[in-house]
Amino acid sequence: MKRILIFLLIVVMILLVALQFKPVVLQFEPIKETVQMLVPSAEKTDLIHKDSLTIKSRVTVPEGFQRVSYPEGSFQQYLRNYRLKPYGSKIINYDETDYFWQDGHIGILEVPVPKNGLQQCADALIRIRSEYLWNNNRKDEIGFNFTSGDYCSWNSYADGYRPKINGNSVSFHKTVSKDNSKTNFYKYLNLIYTYSGTLSLYTELPKINDVKDLKIGDMLIKGGSPGHIAMICDEVINANGDKLYLLFQGNTPAQSVHLVKNLEDDRISPWYQLKKDAVIPVSNYTFGDSKFVRFK
């Protein structure tokens, strides 16, 4: 009888132990399901190298594509190899506050943001283009139209000419001595930021009507007040001639220039398919009727 009681006691203890561990087993089922759901997503976003510090090295070419080649020293190569801050860096406004939305980018370009608040979306691209020309001894090509249509070149500004603005009328007068310094160059850019923008760029620059002709350095633009603009900074092509592109942008308020995600198609993000006259969402802005322009 004693042996029977001991046997029954052992059975009861085994049952109690089994019941005790059952919730633990069940607890892992949702985790297993979550992991299974995340695997395809991880495969779709496997185009990012988080340890890399240039546009070209940060983003992998999608399967079946290869990068379109450009000459060394070209504006296209300059943009493709532009330096990035470490992965995870935030978009910072000109007043050193965090931009309110941090979910639309995969890289921050090494472009300083002036505290004066002038370097907004079009201005950031004007700066990048102008710095390329400056660094490659092509200073004579630096110049932009004001929204009024009046052309203001770096050479004229360096020689001491300044605009006198009376309503829509602009005239230039020599008021200061000649100054070819880099410091004066950035003062010139501040003047351009003040009187130029997406509207003047759209009016001034050559239009690209066939998307097959798009290349690095071209810009997706909505000219207006307000308008918006983003620049192509990398380009890949497949055997069928299909192309994909990377885009970066500045923004309003003036803030960090950033390499954007493709929030509409995570299979190829951050790469974009671009079409003329199409609706193209780019990060936190939607181009409702896409147009493209190119720096001269």
Rank of each mutant, 00 (worst) to 15 (best):
F7C: 09
L8M: 11
L8P: 01
L8I: 13
L9Y: 07
I10E: 03
M13A: 14
L16G: 09
F21A: 04
K22R: 09
L26P: 00
V35N: 07
D51T: 13
R58N: 10
T60S: 14
E63W: 05
G64Y: 11
G64C: 12
Q66A: 09
V68H: 03
S69L: 08
P71E: 14
G73N: 12
F75V: 06
F75P: 00
F75Q: 00
K85Q: 15
P86E: 13
Y94R: 11
D98S: 10
D98P: 00
Y99R: 12
I108M: 12
I108A: 15
Q119V: 08
Q120P: 00
C121P: 04
A122K: 02
A122C: 08
D123G: 15
L125W: 08
I128N: 08
R129W: 14
N135H: 06
R138F: 02
E141V: 01
E141M: 14
F144C: 06
G149T: 02
N155T: 11
N155S: 08
A158S: 11
D159H: 04
I165W: 02
G167N: 07
G167L: 06
G167D: 08
G167K: 03
V170T: 02
F172I: 06
K178D: 08
D179P: 05
S181P: 01
F185N: 11
Y186K: 03
K187V: 10
K187A: 13
N190S: 15
Y193L: 05
Y195L: 10
T198Y: 00
T198W: 01
T203D: 12
T203H: 04
E204P: 02
L205V: 10
P206T: 09
N209C: 02
D210N: 15
D210G: 02
D213F: 03
L214H: 03
M219F: 02
L220R: 00
L220D: 06
G224F: 09
P226T: 13
G227A: 12
A230N: 09
I232S: 00
D242K: 14
L244I: 09
L247V: 08
Q249M: 10
A254P: 02
Q255I: 06
V257D: 03
K261L: 14
E264G: 12
E264D: 15
D265I: 12
D265W: 10
I268G: 03
Q273P: 01
L274Q: 05
A278I: 04
A278K: 09
P281F: 08
P281A: 08
N284E: 14
K291V: 05
R294D: 03
